[in-house]
Design a protein around this nucleic acid. Structure first.
Lengths: 109, 109
DNA sequence: TTATAACCTCTACAATGTAACACTAATGAT
DNA sequence: ATCATTAGTGTTACATTGTAGAGGTTATAA
């Protein structure tokens, strides 16, 4: 089973489609989690996902804009979609009927 | 951030309410993931959740039924609900607009 | 020719996930 | 009585994931 962070990367990549590459995925993940995602975490996990065949990556062309370094593009494989699907289904299933929010107006310890 | 398995335990415990204890939580997790959940995984993770203050556990009475050993009862703390909520929100947010299922009728490699 | 911007790589370590195996305490059957 | 069976829990060790830090490349802008 893939982990939580792995799922975040796969889902973010899938959402981004053609525009999925290291830095954009990172921004997407940060937007979803509302907390910083370190560069190291991201590429390390991307490497692992690729090793497991859940995503494919390749280096794009350098673009002609300030800092236009070549990007590491990402595509989720069918196997990756399958893994994400299983993960998501499990989370959804165990969470059915639960509404985490609004449990306690003022979160007390 | 809590991990995926930790989330499964918290959510299952929360769903079970008064009936949450080791073995019942295990069954709930297995139902959600559709795969076996080893005993060791369960208690090890339960210990960690308790150490982090995300759940409270205590030993119940032995019941008078075959194999009626004392159960380790579990309650999710406010802090645990908070953590689960954050996890769930992140997953939901990054998954918005994605429908994993029905991507490919016959999952090809 | 130096600053700044946008990106990627590598290394090491901490936290989580997981299985195997062992143990306890009750009932039911012989 | 004693032995199998059922329902539970605990411990240890190791594999997999999560995460940060520091450094390196390639481009434009000043």
């Amino acid at each position: 089973m893939i982990g939580e962070f792995e799922y975040l990367l796969i889902a973010a990549s899938h959402r981004l489609g053609e525009d999925a590459y290291g830095a954009s995925i990172r921004r997407e993940v940060e937007a979803a989690t509302e907390r910083p995602c370190s560069i190291g975490s991201l590429y390390t996990t991307l490497d692992r996902l690729e090793a497991k065949g859940l995503v494919t990556t390749w280096m794009g062309e350098a673009t002609s804009q300030r800092g236009g370094r070549a990007k590491r593009m990402v595509t989720v494989t069918a196997k990756g979609i399958e893994a994400a699907s299983i993960f998501y289904r499990a989370i959804s299933k165990v969470s059915r009927d639960i509404s985490w929010e609004a449990q306690c107006p003022l979160s007390q310890e």
